[in-house]
């Protein structure tokens, strides 16, 4: 089965598999989540997918994805799925939901917004979930989320 093929590529015993990332967003998701991990990080690009045509896949060994990381993925690849692996089997399947609010890891694109000028944690209400649009709680501008607004991790 073609569905199994991707799992055979780099089988992990413990960790997280982020599957069904629509190509070519795999590298972007990797960039956003960062590359700090105790174990191996493997990435597969361009698998055939019934759902999205072509899909990308990322596996983090020994890392369980946190809520904030799930929210970040939701903003760029809401179609992706997350499987938590323990002892070589999937113990938890998570679908990705765009959250109602986003605290802290998005930058407001308004240069005249207080969040860009003083030490204030950003805060957004999600006003549209399909093409994700957010409204800054401070300057009240509405933005369609672009990858460059997302604070990246793991750049150490």
């Amino acid at each position: 089965m073609s569905g199994d093929r991707s799992y055979r590529v780099f089988k992990i015993e413990e960790g997280t598999v982020i599957d069904h990332i629509p190509s070519p967003l795999g590298l972007l998701v990797l960039d956003i989540l960062g590359q700090v991990s105790e174990g191996i990080i493997s990435i597969g690009l361009n698998f055939d997918s019934r759902r999205t045509g072509k899909k990308d896949l990322i596996k983090y060994e020994h890392k369980v994805i946190k809520k904030e990381e799930t929210d970040k993925i939701a903003l760029v690849a809401p179609q992706a799925t997350i499987n938590i692996i323990k002892g070589g089997t999937v113990v938890e399947k998570r679908s990705i939901d765009v959250p109602d609010t986003i605290e802290g890891f998005l930058t407001c694109m308004n240069p005249n917004c207080i969040t860009n000028l003083e030490k204030v944690k950003t805060s957004f209400d999600v006003v549209e979930k399909e093409k994700v649009k957010v409204k800054c709680r401070y300057c009240e501008r509405v933005w369609e989320v672009k990858p460059n607004m997302i604070e990246k991790d793991g750049r150490s």
């Binding site: 308004n110 005249n112 917004c113 969040t115 204030v120 800054c136 709680r137 401070y138």
Partner: peptide, 9 residues
């Protein structure tokens, strides 16, 4: 204030 969001802050 000329900065947007200043009053909220």
């Amino acid at each position: 204030h000329k900065i947007e969001g200043a009053a909220r802050r």
